[in-house]
Computed example of a mutant assay.
Amino acid sequence: MPAPTNTFKQNILAGIRQMGCWVGLAHPYAAEIAGTAGFDWLLIDGEHAPNDLRSISEQIAVLQASDSTVVVRLPNDDTALIKQTLDAGAQTLLIPMVESADQARELVRAVRYPPHGIRGVGYALARASQFAAIPDYFATADKEICLLVQVESKAGLDALDDILAVEGVDGVFIGPADLSVDLGYAPSADAPEIRAIVLDAIDRIAATDKAAGILTLDPEFIAECLAYKATFVAVGIDVLTLAGGLRDLAKNARKAADEL
């Protein structure tokens, strides 16, 4: 019995668009609600949301019952945390602030078992192997792990071609906010210059065997990124959706009360 098939990895490498949403409320109940929305993938954010390994593990568990694939963004490239998150059942990781081919190669090693990598062999304890119910997990896990690296700085952008040449990196996600700040602009992709840089990066990624990814809430820019063959595109953030909806509700309620 092999490791579960990573359909997200299969789809993005086949060029099949995957539409997703950020999950930052850091609670399994909220993640479970997001899992009913119909997105192809949901990203549990461990970088900017108040998540830890335990809360990430709980959210992975509830989302396994949904039709949405789980992607986990870690806070950094820490090898120990990568190991623990994979053991918790994540098959797709997004690692932020990748700035060189050497860093990308070390990440590939971190998600693979020996002799091709350095992932610790403790899968008998882990949800990843269904607690040792998958006898062939060690032999089959590597090919189902999807490694996405996040390029979001001038250094990363300058190294993009070298990063794209690293075998074992499945996709490159462009982080427009940090990239914009690093290039001296406001923290968004609103500036025409930043949009042009992002679209050029997506074009370069799509010209290789890697998948290109982006997060943007702007419908016009979403369409542009898709036209440039971005494959995994996040179009919303649960925190902002909830906050915006509640603020609109309160505003409308006050307006209705004032009109009486």
Rank of each mutant, 00 (worst) to 15 (best):
M1S: 12
Q10L: 07
L13M: 05
L13Q: 06
L13S: 04
M19R: 11
C21A: 11
W22R: 05
G24I: 01
G24W: 01
Y29A: 05
A30P: 00
E32H: 02
A34I: 08
A34C: 15
F39G: 06
D40W: 07
D40H: 12
W41V: 13
L42T: 08
L43V: 13
I44V: 11
A49L: 14
D52F: 01
I56Y: 02
I56P: 02
I56Q: 01
Q59T: 02
A61F: 04
L63V: 00
A65T: 07
S66M: 03
D67N: 09
D67V: 02
S68I: 01
T69F: 08
P75Y: 09
P75N: 06
N76G: 15
D77T: 13
D77W: 14
D78P: 06
L86I: 09
D87I: 01
Q91V: 00
Q91G: 00
L94G: 00
I95E: 01
P96L: 01
E106S: 05
V108T: 00
Y113D: 02
Y113E: 05
P114A: 07
H116M: 07
H116R: 12
G120A: 14
G120L: 10
G122Q: 14
Q130R: 13
F131Q: 04
A132K: 10
D136E: 13
D136W: 08
D136H: 14
Y137R: 09
F138D: 13
A139L: 15
A139W: 10
A141Q: 12
C146S: 15
L148P: 05
V149G: 02
E152L: 12
E152S: 13
E152W: 08
A155P: 04
G156P: 14
A159Q: 12
A165W: 14
V172K: 06
F173V: 00
F173A: 00
G175A: 06
G175N: 07
L179A: 06
D182F: 08
L183R: 11
G184W: 11
Y185P: 03
A189W: 15
P192G: 10
E193Q: 15
R195I: 09
L199W: 13
A201P: 04
A201M: 11
A201D: 11
D203S: 15
R204P: 04
I205A: 07
I205E: 14
A207I: 14
A207L: 12
A207F: 03
K210R: 15
A211H: 11
I214A: 02
L215I: 06
L215K: 09
L217Q: 14
L217F: 14
E224N: 05
E224C: 09
L226N: 12
A230W: 06
A234Y: 05
A234G: 04
V239D: 04
L242F: 08
A243L: 06
G245F: 06
R247P: 00
R247M: 09
L249M: 14
N252E: 15
K255M: 11
A257M: 09
E259W: 04
L260Q: 14
